[in-house]
């Protein structure tokens, strides 16, 4: 019995520290729901390490973070279908991205078909299917790698007065997100972006809602409308 307890304590600690891999961590999360000892060990471990979180100096954050959260909150006790869907997403590690990836896999064929229609003469180097948090396809970005990109919107976007949709990509983590341009009328557009390295497989593309004229900081600051990872066209 005492051996078991030591084991449970060890697993709980490694889970809380983030040392388990994604599959093991998910297993622990499932197990704790039916194992009171494991649940108690995890609770104790979290509270044991919590003083380390108090060493973090609070940073000043703008109102826009709360605005984005508030805008995305579902109604509590909403229709049962919505609730179960939210739970399913949340139970997966990296829910948003996992959803996005799943939806993208299903959408690659669509993307390839569309890309043929969009630009018959020049082939894009990469195509990214952008989905919203629910995994619905919202837009397709084609990056031609010659400072030109095309964005095709596949959903209706409501752009409030004084706002615009901005298109971003992440060529590399060091460089951070780079703006490819603005979509002013929420319609499909060709963009003349900055000179960037050749787009690569799995490069991130993203649409955010920014103030008219584009993000004042040069980095995405607004609500993320859709995002997805590029695939190299073949």
């Amino acid at each position: 019995m005492s051996e078991d307890r030591i084991d449970i304590g060890g697993i709980a600690d490694e889970y809380v520290l983030g040392l388990l891999d994604a599959i093991e961590a998910r297993q622990v999360e499932t197990d704790m729901e039916s194992d009171p000892d494991l649940k108690a060990a995890i609770a104790a471990s979290r509270d044991r390490f919590l003083p380390l979180d108090d060493t973090a100096e609070p940073t000043v954050i703008g109102d826009d973070l709360w605005t984005r959260i508030d805008a995305a909150l579902p109604v509590q006790g909403a229709a049962p279908i919505d609730v179960s869907r939210l739970t399913a997403n949340d139970n997966r590690p990296g829910g948003w991205r996992a959803t996005a990836l799943a939806a993208m896999a299903a959408a690659v064929i669509l993307a390839v078909a569309l890309s043929v229609n969009l630009m018959r003469t020049i082939e894009p180097l990469v195509v990214a299917v952008l989905v919203n948090e629910a995994g619905d396809i919202q837009a397709i970005v084609e990056d031609f790698g010659n400072e030109k990109a095309a964005v095709r919107l596949l959903a209706d976007f409501t752009v409030p007065q004084g706002k615009t949709i901005e298109v971003w990509t992440l060529p590399s983590p060091e460089r951070g997100p780079v703006s490819l341009g603005l979509i002013d009328d929420a319609r499909s557009v060709r963009l003349d972006g900055p000179a960037l390295p050749k787009p690569h497989d799995s490069q991130l593309y993203e649409l955010t809602l920014e103030q008219a004229g584009g993000s004042p900081t040069g980095r995405p600051t607004g609500l993320i409308l859709a995002k997805g990872f590029a695939k190299i066209t073949r």
Binding site: A56, P74, V83, D90, P173, G176
Partner: peptide
């Protein structure tokens, strides 16, 4: 404010840290 710092210590980018906190608050809610 503190949660953004904690996330940033892990993900190393302020914009990603805010994204983490944004998603976390929606999860806290649900």
């Amino acid at each position: 404010g503190r949660l953004v710092t904690i996330a940033e210590r892990i993900v190393r980018r302020r914009d990603l840290a805010e994204e983490v906190v944004q998603e976390s608050f929606i999860r806290i809610w649900t």
